[in-house]
Amino acid sequence: MTWVPSPAGVLAFDRPAPGAPTFRCTVNMGPDPVELPRPGDILLASGPVEGNAGTVVLPPDTTVWWSLPH
């Protein structure tokens, strides 16, 4: 597991999966939505996530699991 630098109130880490692409977990633990760079494709999200090809807006109390490019 590798911690990823992130804004205040956001927890992010990468985890390599043996024989599979690395994934990232990003959690917004703060009270406000946070705009972040999109690191890859969304695998699973605990709530609605909006954005475009380059960024996403992560609502409060929301977690996203990403598939990272090789």
Rank of each mutant, 00 (worst) to 15 (best):
T63I: 12
P48Y: 06
L58G: 06
P59Q: 09
N28G: 13
S46C: 09
G47S: 13
P60Q: 15
T22M: 09
T63C: 12
A12T: 05
T26Q: 05
V49D: 05
I42L: 08
M29I: 10
V10R: 00
H70A: 11
V49G: 01
P31W: 05
W65N: 10
P21G: 04
G54F: 13
T55F: 11
W65C: 14
P33C: 07
A12Y: 03
P69A: 08
V49S: 01
D32H: 13
W66N: 05
P48K: 03
V4W: 09
E50N: 13
W3P: 08
P31L: 05
V64Q: 05
R24P: 08
F13H: 10
P31A: 14
A20C: 04
V27L: 15
A17N: 08
T2M: 11
G51E: 01
R15H: 03
L44W: 12
W65V: 12
P31K: 10
P48A: 10
A45Y: 00
R15I: 07
V27S: 14
P48D: 10
V57N: 00
S67Y: 03
T63F: 11
D61R: 15
L58Q: 08
V10W: 00
L58V: 06
L36P: 09
F23L: 15
P37M: 01
E35Q: 13
A17F: 03
D61A: 11
A12V: 06
W65S: 07
G54K: 15
P69F: 09
A45K: 04
A53R: 15
A20K: 10
V64L: 11
D32W: 12
G9M: 11
E35Y: 10
V49R: 05
G40V: 07
N52M: 11
P21Y: 06
R24V: 08
A17E: 04
A12E: 02
L11Y: 06
M1C: 07
S67E: 14
M29P: 05
V56N: 01
I42D: 07
F23Q: 11
L68T: 06
T22G: 01
P60N: 06
N28M: 13
A17P: 02
L44C: 05
R38L: 07
